[in-house]
Amino acid sequence: MFEYFLKRVLNSIPTVLAVVIVVFSLIHIAPGDPVDILVGENATPVVKKQIEREYGLDKPIHVQAFLFFKNLIVNGGGESIYFKKPCFKVVFSRFKNTFKLAMFSFVIAVFFSFVFAFILLWRKGGVFYRMIVFLSTIGMSLPSFWLGILLILFFSVKLKLLPVSGTEGFRHIILPSLTLAIPMGCYLLHIIRGEIESQMSKRFVLSLRTRGIKESLIFFRHVLKNSLVPVIMVLALQLGFLLTGAIITETIFSFNGIGLLLVTAINVRDYSLVQSLAIFIAVIYIYSNILGDVLIAVIDRRVSFEKKDI
């Protein structure tokens, strides 16, 4: 088990390095002079010279890549031009809020999707059932920025219940987390429902029933456990959705997390901050996927601990 975990983490190191290289090469692929991209065309020659030295932009490309790495580790991603602080310092100070938002919407989505899945199972085939399935299909396709605006219209403008924007208190987190949770919850509901229904029609359920085991026991002890595996797999993947969904959601609600930071960085052309953020989000995404895989391996003994081919 632990070996498997270690192996996955070790295997991820080349991927992380490659991610850094992809992000590093962005300023070279993009049109325009790298110095201009980093500090803006209107910067003074002194600043330009300094950046050129710091990133080694006058040196061959492999030296630059090395310097980029060094910058990332030693200097915290280099100085952000807009915030005048090391990039990662800014990122970490904002990440707390995004993490809160992500966890909050995660809990809402998981809780409600399970509740609705149970209700659907209980009321299978009725008008109510069809309505929920229909609504969840719509919910899955709701673009988050539009959903956010609808929520603002309803809760803030019409009912005047919740604030439109800000980060401070509990009341500010409700609307953004709903915006993230609704599409995710609908998707989860879809997965959970399909999984439970397919498990319910398996042979072992029939055999348990013929042995006279109580329906609730069959459900909770056998079916639920089996259907949990794909659900967790999806949950781990959804973490990436939460992080990227946060980019747009935070922009709508001016919620002070890394998503808003990314958009701010793009708007003020602070490209070293954009690079640091891209690396940061990608690394979190990679390790949350690994965590999901390990979790699945713990729950489901059928998963072999060998490295899988893609």
């Binding site: 990227t244 793009i266 893609i310």
Partner: peptide, 25 residues
Amino acid sequence: LVAIIDVFQSFPGMLLAIVFAAFFK
């Protein structure tokens, strides 16, 4: 190719799109 696919899949798709669009203005 498998390595490249692995790397590109380590970015959430939307992030990749946003970062590229930002760098290409």
